[in-house]
Design a protein around this nucleic acid. Structure first.
Lengths: 345, 345
DNA sequence: CTTCCGGATTTGATCGATCAAACTAAGATG
DNA sequence: CATCTTAGTTTGATCGATCAAATCCGGAAG
């Protein structure tokens, strides 16, 4: 195979220098229109493609975002969330001329090792983190090392959610649970239980709060009664099933259930039978398949928001925070309730 | 932040030249052990990381594989297959010092455009393709342009499945359906229907064949009777439901169903009730959640196989086929049946 | 008519690594 | 003792692009 054409070849054909070709590619507005079109014709004729590595070496920018592929999350049910987010992110990145590079890690420490490797090797400019948790060492490390990143998930446990060095996008789970709970109350249910995760869990506590608020607004249950109606277990179908079974055996009556995840909701479904309404969270394929109502997260919007925060509204290079301190630093998007009718007993 | 250390800095500290540092990194065996450990100490002390782009520019190798992120496949149910494959692939790649770069495309033509962009830009060395289909233009183009690739899926519709220029790994769906069908026959079922996809479909026809063979071996049904028992519809829960409904309305009796996908199987489940056994394909989270028996594809093995075919048993650079014409060119792995008991009516 | 200005373009240097060839020193060979 | 070999290491050139500074040129200003 012949050598691929370079800026020099294009320049020779168009009768200009390499730099002018480079200018046509990067700063077209400073090139005379006539020259520009001549260069563009030459590019097309030769089928020229810029050599990404050469450009990266010189500019010290990779135009690539790194993202860790989650370890097959728990039961696989909510894996579709990460999957959908990743897909939207890749599409949005493509549209901006960015690339997405994947990696895996065995835990937070290993992930930090990967951060260093990929960043120092100039493989990626910035990282997108998912599943943030309390006192996440990853974000601390990235901030300390001045490496740009954006998280899908709020900086739970940090005093200042508005730290300008920590960009984040998140879904307002509190609103989601509020919607779900309010919808059940509107249908006449009174004792709506919340099947959630053990505290502290940023996401879990936030969702629980939405439920409590809706209950306080729409029912006359006392705080003590609410406390009884909020079993907390690790995520999973089996765990959800057991939790609801125990709630029932403890003699605590409930009319309906809202859950922190579809996996928990499914576990609940397997216990309560068709007459007790259950609402899940994440709107996974499983929820759709069994006819489970669920909260849909607008992941396209989350992905678009992540890109906007880190690369600007339409840019393909990092936003310079020093220069533009007023740029937005986070975004909270609102999920919505998807109502379905049941197909499982 | 200070400038990152380079090979030169490491060499200065260790008292050797840049090239010796490079040799320690790439061909350690030609460096005197004593020198090597001195260099390694310097590397550790400075926290040196090779600049990936510089290396790529010089070597013309990116040590990166490109893979298209599938457009949210059909109903999202079987999306988990691609997801799991991608995960295994990324882990295997990490272990070899390779990276995975994602991209999306709106269709085969657009995907070919991306191939050219990523390959000419030296972003990736090779591609991993999924979901191959009849007369796939992508593989033709890649072969014509001499770009290395491996497919997850056989080259359906091509005369020569052993074309050494087309590396592939696939799961033996025929064996999977044979297992499922034989298991049902062993349990005493006789009229086992096959709910599949319209022909021609490489994967679909292959799976159907496994069913027919098992039926021919284990029952006395005539070919004409079998023809009646194989409805074919596009993939999807609704389509599966309708197909089985029509089969029933047509007055064609059946005792059990094997399906070409979990989505179709789930559709069937919604019609037949708890007494008719149904077996799906892909062992998705949905199957697990509703207690649907299904065929599990060993995706770790598929991913490992893909890497081995293209990079050699443990290598991190492309296998040179000219030099080693006897290297394996494809691999067929066997799936296995997962038996469950039903949770849906 | 000369000088200055600014837009358009070109030239020289550089990013960080590896390749290819040259060099060095110690041991083997005749 | 001079020459050859070879393992180990160094030097010069290069990959393809962009940055920074220099050059060119036509028109406005004095």
């Amino acid at each position: 195979m012949a050598r691929l054409p370079t800026v020099l070849d294009v320049g020779l054909l168009a009768g200009v220098s390499r730099q002018t070709v480079s200018n046509v590619l990067n700063t077209p507005d400073i090139v005379r229109p006539e020259t520009r079109s001549r260069v563009e014709a030459a590019i097309a004729e030769l089928g020229y493609r810029p050599h990404a590595s050469a450009r990266r070496l010189r500019t010290r920018r990779s135009s690539t975002l790194g993202i860790r592929l989650d370890p097959m999350s728990n039961n696989g049910i909510s894996g579709s969330v990460h999957d959908r987010f990743l897909h939207s992110l890749t599409e949005g990145a493509d549209a901006r001329g960015l690339r997405i590079m994947l990696f895996t890690a065995t835990g937070p420490d290993d992930e930090i090792r990967q951060f260093r490797r990929l960043h120092d090797g100039a493989d990626v400019d910035a990282f997108v983190l998912t599943s943030t948790f309390f006192n996440d060492p990853r974000t601390e490390w990235l901030i300390a090392n001045g490496i740009p990143f954006v998280t899908f998930g709020r900086p739970w446990g940090i005093d200042d959610m508005n730290d300008p060095r920590h960009l984040w996008v998140d879904v307002d789970g509190r609103s989601g649970l509020h919607q779900a709970t309010a919808a059940l109350i509107a249908e006449g249910e009174r004792r709506v239980a919340f099947l959630g995760w053990p505290s502290p869990s940023g996401t879990g506590d936030d969702r629980r709060l939405g439920w409590r608020e809706a209950m306080a607004e729409g029912t006359d249950l006392s705080p003590a009664e609410l406390d009884e109606l909020q079993p907390a277990v690790e995520d999973g179908v089996a765990q959800g099933r057991e939790a609801i079974r125990e709630l029932r055996e403890a003699g605590i009556p409930f009319d309906a259930i809202v859950a922190a995840s579809d996996a928990l909701a499914l576990g609940a479904l397997l216990v309560v039978g068709p007459d007790v309404p259950v609402i899940g969270y994440d709107n996974t394929p499983v929820a759709e398949a069994v006819g489970l109502s669920s909260i849909e997260q607008p992941l396209e919007e989350v992905a678009a928001g992540a890109l906007e925060l880190i690369m600007g509204a339409t840019g393909s290079s990092l936003v310079d925070w020093e220069a533009d301190p007023d740029a937005p630093k986070h975004r909270l998007v609102t999920p919505r309730l998807i109502q379905r009718h049941r197909r499982i007993t």
